[in-house]
Design a protein around this nucleic acid. Structure first.
Length: 260
DNA sequence: ATGACGGTGTGGCACCGA
């Protein structure tokens, strides 16, 4: 079973690229973030024609997440249970596959703007609420995969300028402690289970030829629960879509789970 | 350097992202 995550930065703009990518990468599930459209404008029909069911949780202009899957998603949950949120940032669903029954949690984590800002405080509260909800979600669903745009670099390997960007947004100790707290729930960063190329990133700024110069960050992650860890057979970043015309600033990350 | 680029919504710019 292959699961991918991709922040598309507007599904309206990127739908042709998503369809092209799925044709070349027929994954079992694709988790999207930053749809930037409401559910009335979600391209259910086009994705169905490509062979995918869609569970969508959209929002006008900002945020918005969706799970595309070969088999229908069951028990769909939108946003963090018990945490009132105006913004559409989480969609969770259960998928049946040869790898077993998998609970998939797809998140567009809060950006946080800058340490000390109101948005940073929202990010901290959101991360705490996510963790507490996931704690119970893991009890109900031991086979769990948490994917998405985390807006957090895990360590110095995940950033093009660890010294210059130390304690700036996406690099603060506070954010990294929240990431560690997710790992402490029994989750594992699938990408780091394997040897990876040096300077592997999932996002590059549109400005200053950042992609060409490989000045990027690894902020899109796939975390797998303890019960699934032994089934993880690969995890890769696909940089190719960043070379497209009108690319998203993020690229897909793909994990493969062996059959149970 | 409160910049840069790109998306959205509104309207000739502001806001947001990371």
């Amino acid at each position: 079973m292959k699961i991918a995550t991709w922040n598309v930065n507007s599904l309206a703009v990127r739908l042709p690229q998503v369809l092209d990518w799925l044709a070349a990468n027929p994954v079992d599930a694709l988790c999207l973030q930053e749809l930037k459209l409401n559910d009335e404008k979600f391209p259910f029909k086009e994705l169905e024609a490509a062979g995918y069911h869609s569970a969508a949780f959209g929002q006008k202009t900002y945020n918005g997440v969706a799970i595309l899957s070969r088999t229908p998603a069951r028990d769909v949950v939108k946003n963090i249970v018990g945490f009132a949120d105006e913004q559409s940032r989480i969609i969770a669903a259960t998928l049946d596959s040869p790898a077993g029954e998998v609970r998939l949690v797809n998140g567009y984590f809060v950006n946080g703007q800058a340490p000390g800002s109101e948005k940073f405080e929202y990010k901290m509260k959101w991360l705490t609420a996510l963790r507490e909800w996931l704690r119970s979600e893991l009890v109900a669903h031991p086979n769990l995969v948490l994917v998405g745009d985390f807006n957090i670099t895990v360590d110095d390997r995940d950033t093009y300028d660890p010294e210059g960007l130390r304690e700036t947004i996406h690099h603060t100790t506070e954010e990294r402690l929240h990431f560690q707290a997710l790992l402490d729930l029994g989750l594992t960063d699938a990408f780091r289970m394997f040897e990876q190329p040096e300077k592997s990133y999932s996002w590059w700024d549109y400005r200053e030829f950042a992609f060409r110069r490989n000045r990027g960050l690894r902020i899109d992650h796939i975390l797998v629960s303890q019960a699934l860890k032994s089934q993880v057979s690969s995890c890769v970043i696909d940089k190719l879509p960043r070379k497209n015309e009108r690319p998203s600033d993020h690229v897909p990350v793909v994990v493969e789970l062996a059959d149970a």
